[in-house]
Amino acid sequence: MTNARQQTAAISISDRRDRAITLAPAVLVLAFGFLSPLINLAIESLKEFTPGRVGSVENAATTVQNYHELANQAFANVLLTTFWIGGVAALVGQLVAFPLAYFIVRRLSPRMRTLALGFLITLVLSSVLIKTYAIELTFGSVGILRPLLLTVGLSANSREYINIVVIAGLVHSIIPVATLTLMGAMQSIDPRLLDAAQSLGAPGWKAHLSITLPLSLPALVSSTLISLTFAISAFVIPMVLGRGRVLFMSNVIYTRFSDIANYPSGAAISLVMLATALAVISVITLAHAWKSRR
């Protein structure tokens, strides 16, 4: 039966009215609380900065000055820091999440699996503040992992030490989400494929390299990119763990707001950040399109 077609055609006038009623609140909230602020940000980013005002002066001159000011070494460093620390954290996160997801899906009893799921979901729903604080306690002045880092020759005050702590903070948040994302893909891999590979003479680790890894590669790619988007828009983690020495783009926006009240410049950085986030997202979309074309 052409059921799909019939159901589409079954939409009556009352359906159309119901649809308008059900969608209207979300559309209004989205338009007022999301789209308008973003458009306003774009306009604001082109306004001349007048110190000591919330927002620009009425009829302030239009200028690209705020963007031009970003073309300096300091902001380039911020951009670079955001991406390299975020990127390393995203990759380390996958390195742990991939075997962890496989372990939970294939090696645990249903009971233990539920327990592991509960643990991961608890971590996802836990406050980023708690997690950040916990990392600070673990690596901070009295932390138990501090001696470990000190013995490999890192000074507690060095830039490297702070970088590692920030990465640890990001990874702690990335692992649960990435694991849950990868578990979906792992579940859909037929376990008999591994048996088949091994019965054809491949040792276990090679079977994984030739079966599990390629089949979950699309999921791994998007999980990495999702983690990267999370990492580069992180705010609390670099703010608390970076001790003012590791600055992400979001921290600079906040500084523009709280310390020097330069809103037009904050708006310009916001737009740069939005553009980078969208760029990463569009890579995910392209990867998906590429996956479904194959």
């Binding site: 999301f34 602020p37 973003l38 306003n40 940000l41 580069i232 828009s233 705010f235 783009m249 979001s250 926006i253 906040y254 707001f257 904050g266 708006a267 916001s270 950040m273 939005l274 986030a277």
Partner: peptide
């Protein structure tokens, strides 16, 4: 969209 951008916007 990065939450900081939403907040600032």
């Amino acid at each position: 969209v990065p939450p900081v951008v939403i907040g600032f916007g």
